[in-house]
Design a protein around this nucleic acid. Structure first.
Lengths: 110, 110
DNA sequence: GCCTATAATCGACTATAGTCGATGGTCGAT
DNA sequence: ATCGACCATCGACTATAGTCGATTATAGGC
């Protein structure tokens, strides 16, 4: 048998974790969605959907769709405020990303 | 005019950069591809395509496809060796990822 | 109660991407 | 020269996802 090489200090990634990280990265795998996230992240206060539409320059339904995707993966937080929806960024997602990269590369989480 | 909020310490991301980062993340947005990358990254030596096929458990053409995608974005490096193809990981991609995340969040690169 | 503003949802279209089986091409050994 | 191992490419299918316009729902103001 030709056993594949293995290094105990660099453990293999379980397939379930791979799918989880993949859906994580898939959330960032669209240019428009990155612009939406960036608009929210660079704002000094909560943004409404309409403001994001003006800023990014795509249709309102498109922004609404991207916000739903971003919210599902906890990149942003949405809060109803009357007839508007206030969107804020979740700063924790910044630090989770390098951690995922490290695990893919085979380093144990600290 | 309802001008969008702007913070000079958190510059907006140019659309071209957004697309560039998006294609970067898109490369990591598939579970099988992450397993391929992880297999190469955790190996203590260069791996052949056949070894990756045995390790990940998908078709040979599928692995070949994913390796091409990974190589195009410089995640891995491929080198012909007779009838085999030796695949090694590009360790630099690990550090570029947090940098991209920081720019999306509006922090200037240091 | 009616009207407007705001945003979510729906329906449809299109493009992209993952997977596989089959084929073809190249290298090395016999 | 032939054969076998190894891998890239092709063709086809399917699933997913991004975009838009239209519609619907809800909340606030008149």
């Amino acid at each position: 048998m030709n056993r594949p090489p293995q290094n105990p200090t660099r453990p293999a990634l379980p397939p379930d974790d791979a799918d989880e990280y993949a859906s994580w990265f898939r959330c960032l795998a669209d240019g428009t969605r990155l612009l939406v996230l960036n608009a929210v992240a660079t704002a000094d206060r909560a943004m409404t959907v309409g403001e994001i539409v003006d800023r990014v320059g795509v249709g309102q339904s498109t922004v609404s769709h991207h916000l739903r995707v971003l919210a599902e993966e906890r990149f942003v937080h949405t809060q109803a405020d009357g007839t508007r929806t206030l969107v804020t960024v979740n700063a924790d997602c910044l630090q989770a990303l390098p951690e995922a990269a490290a695990r893919i590369m085979g380093f144990d989480p600290p």
